[in-house]
Design a protein around this nucleic acid. Structure first.
Lengths: 336, 336
DNA sequence: CTGAAAGCGCTTACAG
DNA sequence: CTGAAAGCGCTTACAG
């Protein structure tokens, strides 16, 4: 390992100058900088991150926190964020909560993050009242992605969840559906996490706007994944309530619904229309109608926002309806 | 920020003793250790990672390198590995190559990794001859996951790719198929990356074992994702060659095939049977027959292997055929 | 624009 | 079992 002293000696300057020249600081003459760079290259030198961090007080890392890296939206956001962060010279520390409340608490309520990262990116992170205090005690810059709740002082990047849900619903209503079920998403507002609440609001608003009375029997909560979607759909069918379409809070839940419907011998869209939100990679493969949201773009914008100190406030990205084969006019309208 | 001196003062011992007590080193009396722990807890102390790293020479991080975190297999391996690593007290540094050759080279051929991580986990990482030298110059312990090629001195965790492909093929052949296409996977052996080569070998072996002469016109290369599967299937159809089944190198390619078949008005399995490898989360949703591989288990075992210095050699995990609705006997056997 | 020196907060021989 | 002191390899006021 060549150290900064080796480079300093080779270039005939002090270590302070090497440090400045290599980091591109302004107060170095061009000739000196060239000499230093040449020596550093020749010796294959790169500064020890550990030493830089200790001396400089910056860790050079950004913590990226996701609920489940295995879900489409999160992996897509992380991929984009990772690339942007590495391009900007940061290490990416991955924290995958895996649905564990314990992991969430440990991450937020210990000093672990502060000493490991210069900044934090919270993706779809539900926060309780006491979590806000913990987050602000981190004394770290941060950004939230796809979380309706703003952390004070942190910018946020997201879509309009109410609007996205309305787009899906208006499409279904436009096809003639009136009995539209809604599946998945914990809509309790205990957690300061408005995504699900907002999507539910969009569902209800669209119905009311069309003069359709919402029927609580058509709403089934559930986790936002395949299993949750399948279970919620199973529950819906078990209730024996009439419906001709399902609006799923996300595409993975919609895919779970597809599995459950198939299992019950129901065809999509002949017997039931199905729409989601996301535009998951695999949505085209199953012909799923959905409201597309720009996941990668949210990751990139979050990093941009995080790294430009002037950026503040909310970034709201657009969504758009993508019609595929999973939605059609109802064959027979079953008014319960 | 409370520092080690503060704890030392509070406990009435030296910083050396604090350091030893907190890290659980053996040469500390129980009473002293208790006193130190109590003081540390009371003051909310946790050691500065940067300082520990510089002084101790260990970074406390493990680099996890994947081609594309958005693909099912990789995100699943990473999720499991991340959990195991955090439980063991390591930071997880994520490197997502994103298919960029440049990213791969930069990662392997600069000292970047060595100074940032104590160990490396390479997941499905193709290595060229010159890469091996670079990897061993890292002078870091490591493990490879799902890469047929062993890095000298590094253990590996994987499945039997030849066997997995044979299981899928034997199922199709057992149903009566003889014209079986194979899609996706760069089978050139330029890269020391045997996964695709092995799966192709399984394809060929199964055919030969059943007395079927392989037809090169039935093989189409392509990337291992939706787009690749769709493109390869499009190419296959464009060739106008007769076939009754498709064996896809992975489930995502199979899903791409499904899209392309649907687009061409072909039904699965009535017109074409379709089988993959993986048992992707969404495979049940589309009724895909596949050979399941334990992705999370590979992530966990890789970490285990990495952290136990005695562990060596290859870990070979089992696969099993999972039959769903995408395969059936051919309606009419088209012998080209 | 450049350098000498202190300091970042730990860990680790070394000595006892 | 414990402590004093050196050292890990940088960065940063401070002085010039």
């Amino acid at each position: 390992m060549t150290r900064i002293d080796d480079v300093a000696r080779a270039a005939g300057v002090s270590t302070a100058t090497v440090s400045r020249a290599l980091r591109g600081l302004p107060m170095v003459s061009e000739t000196t900088r060239r000499r230093v760079l040449e020596a550093a290259t020749r010796l294959g030198y790169s500064a020890s991150p550990s030493a830089s961090r200790l001396a400089g007080g910056r860790t050079g890392g950004v913590a990226v926190v996701v609920p489940r890296i295995t879900r489409w939206f999160f992996s897509t956001v992380v991929e984009a964020a990772e690339q942007s962060l590495h391009e900007a010279g940061y290490d990416v520390l991955l924290f995958n909560l895996g649905g564990s409340e314990q992991a969430r608490l440990k991450l937020l309520h210990t000093g672990a993050l502060r000493q490991r990262a210069d900044a934090v990116m919270l993706i779809s992170m539900p926060l309780l009242a006491e979590d806000f205090a913990a987050v602000s005690q981190l004394e770290l810059p941060g950004v939230t992605v796809s979380s309706g709740t703003a952390v004070p002082g942190w910018p946020s990047v997201r879509i309009d969840d109410v609007g996205a849900a309305r787009k899906a619903m208006e499409h279904l209503i436009g096809l003639g559906h009136t009995r539209i079920a809604r599946i998945c998403g914990e809509s309790s507002d205990e957690l300061a996490f408005t995504t699900h609440v907002d999507r539910r609001r969009g569902y209800l608003e669209a119905l009311l706007h069309a003069g359709i009375t919402p029927d609580p029997a058509l709403e089934v909560e559930g986790s936002l994944d395949l299993a949750g979607g399948a279970a919620a759909t199973g529950e819906l069918l078990a209730r024996g309530v009439a419906f001709t379409a399902i609006f799923a809070t996300c595409d993975e839940a919609a895919m779970g619904a597809l599995t459950a419907l198939r299992r019950h011998g129901l065809r999509v869209p002949e017997d039931v229309s199905l729409a989601g939100i996301d535009d998951h990679d695999l949505a085209p493969a199953i012909g799923l109608t959905t409201v597309a949201q720009p996941a990668a773009e949210q990751g990139r914008r979050a990093v941009q926002t995080l790294l430009s100190p002037d950026a503040q406030g909310d970034v709201l990205l657009p969504t758009h309806l993508t019609v595929r084969e999973s939605t059609a006019a109802p064959a027979r309208t079953l008014d319960g």
